[in-house]
């Protein structure tokens, strides 16, 4: 299962690669990284939407996570659009509601709890 992680913090790549090192080694998950909304869209276009799950931060300079979500959900071709999981800041109701109305499939709150994330990903994979 290919997961695209979108975050403006580049160290997120190292973090995910280490947190999921066993899963990556066992080829359970495959990760790709984009450091802005624009990069993410470019990646999706280039790789013909091979990522089944997109994990995106909301708070990014340039194209925000919400804009990215909107683009993916509305302009994705061919349907169905990939699953999008948004990372919201703790207690940020406004962004949570907006993301939900834009069609976000799931939510994670910052700081990301990797135990929960792993469980969620594994359930998704088995479905």
């Amino acid at each position: 299962m290919k997961i695209l992680v979108v975050d403006d913090e580049t160290d997120v790549q190292a973090l995910f690669e280490q947190r999921f090192r066993k899963e990556i080694r066992n080829h359970e998950f495959e990760f790709a990284f984009a450091f802005s909304g624009e990069q993410a869209l470019a990646y999706l276009k280039e790789h013909n939407q091979e990522a089944v799950l997109i994990l995106s931060d909301i708070n990014m300079p340039g194209m925000s996570g919400l804009e990215l979500l909107d683009q993916i959900k509305r302009k994705s071709a061919p349907p169905p659009p990939p699953l999008v999981m948004m990372i919201t800041a703790y207690g940020d109701e406004e962004n949570y509601n907006t993301a939900k109305s834009l069609g976000a499939d799931d939510f994670l709150t910052k700081p990301v709890d990797f135990v929960t994330l792993k469980e969620k990903l594994k359930t998704l994979m088995h479905d």
Partner: peptide, 21 residues
């Protein structure tokens, strides 16, 4: 608040990972 949260998350995460490693 935002600018501090990100580095602190990294500090917490990487130190946890180091424990596991």
């Amino acid at each position: 608040a935002h600018e501090i949260q990100n580095p602190l998350n990294f500090v917490n995460n990487f130190s946890e990972i180091n424990g596991e490693l």
